[in-house]
């Protein structure tokens, strides 16, 4: 089976500074894969490279076997990869309902239509309602997204990310800034919503990482130093030295 995501020898330099060097990563279909690493290791840059937000200096990224490096983000999204952002990134002046609905429109084939009434598209309405139900925001549907609580905005962010029916979902620190209870809620939400999809997650909270991930990759200075099951990563001496050692004592 072809890997959902295959990163081969990717480099990213900003001027003379190499942020990512010789990055190799393979994520199988249906796998829940976490990328961890100390601050400044290049986790978000890796995310941006895969999702097309920035282009690699060299190397290639494949999605389900097709090369996607060099494509525009919306082209990559149309091929089934969706991502969320570390900083909450919703449509602030639009209601919760409209936020999710916008994310459903392309996938339901309505594209740039200006001859259809957006309120009378049954499959759009049903799908939007189902996703609101899934992220427990049905009771907040008419509230402008900018007025939601922080945790609610993060949940909406996840809702927008999965609304288009992507097969590969990438979440950038989905529980950052959440309380313990909120984090638990978010993790069970993520687990439920990414059922049957490939999940790539960047996360600082080790309980989230080890609770959620099937496999973990450790990124240090733009290079993956280890990749394996949570158990293997826990035992890996390089990882303990570079990363867990500082955090786990």
């Amino acid at each position: 089976m072809t890997a959902a995501i295959e990163v081969r020898a990717v480099e990213k330099r900003f001027g003379n500074v190499g942020i990512i060097r010789d990055l190799n990563l393979s994520i199988a279909q249906g796998e829940r894969h976490a990328i961890i690493g100390p601050n400044g290791a290049g986790k978000s840059t890796t995310f941006n490279l895969i999702s097309g937000h920035i282009k690699p200096t060299s190397g290639e990224v494949r999605l389900n076997g097709d090369v996607i490096s060099g494509l525009q983000p919306f082209e990559i999204n149309r091929r089934g990869l969706s991502r969320s952002f570390q900083v909450t990134n919703v449509f602030a002046r639009m209601t919760v309902w409209e936020n999710v609905r916008c994310a459903v429109l392309w996938a339901t084939g309505h594209r740039y239509a200006f001859w259809k009434n957006v309120d009378s598209l049954p499959e759009v309405r049903e799908r939007t309602a189902r996703i609101l139900e899934d992220i427990h925001l049905t009771h907040r549907r008419d509230v402008p997204a900018g007025l939601l609580t922080y945790a609610e905005q993060r949940e909406l962010e996840i809702g927008i990310t999965i609304a288009g029916g992507a097969t590969v979902v990438m979440l950038d620190e989905p529980t950052a800034g959440m309380s313990h209870a909120e984090t638990e809620r978010a993790v069970s939400l993520i687990r439920r919503l990414t059922e049957g999809r490939t999940l790539v997650i960047v996360e600082h909270d080790m309980s989230v990482v080890f609770g959620l991930a099937d496999r973990i990759s450790v990124l240090v200075y733009g290079h993956i130093i280890a990749s394996g099951t949570p158990e293997e990563i826990r035992r890996d001496p390089k990882v303990r030295e570079a990363y867990l050692g500082e955090e786990a004592h």
């Binding site: 602030a92 916008c102 429109l105 740039y112 239509a113 990310t161």
Partner: peptide, 20 residues
């Protein structure tokens, strides 16, 4: 219309629109 609503989305957050 779908275009009208996506225009609002572009107004609010053009970066995010690319990822839907």
């Amino acid at each position: 219309t779908p275009l009208g609503r996506i225009s609002n989305a572009v107004r609010d957050n053009p970066e995010r629109v690319q990822f839907i």
